[in-house]
């Protein structure tokens, strides 16, 4: 799942120097806007055929937190 999330993420951002890590932060490290994040999440929902709770997204700052949340849904 982590690899798939990174693959989807790289549709929306350039790979940073040093690559993506589980602790990479969407806003602080990748300078993603909320639109970037939401449309990426839309792709994630389509890819994994799930519906993400919007309020939960405000507590997710890193790739690992997103992966952990998605894993809890499955």
């Amino acid at each position: 799942m982590y690899e798939k999330i990174c693959e989807i993420l790289l549709n929306y951002v350039e790979e940073p120097e040093g690559g993506l890590t589980p602790e990479t932060k969407f806003v602080d490290d990748l300078a993603m806007t909320s639109l970037d994040i939401m449309t990426m999440i839309g792709d994630v929902e389509d890819e994994f055929d799930i519906e993400i709770e919007t309020a939960k997204l405000r507590e997710i700052y890193t790739i690992s937190e997103l992966v952990a949340y998605l894993s809890s849904l499955k």
Binding site: S34, L35, M38, T39, I41, G42, E45, I52, T54, A55, L57, R58
Partner: peptide
């Protein structure tokens, strides 16, 4: 703000 953000984010995710 938080309510509106959640609502807007729902819409943005479906904006295709």
């Amino acid at each position: 703000l938080l309510k509106l953000s959640d609502t807007q984010n729902d819409v943005l995710r479906h904006a295709r």
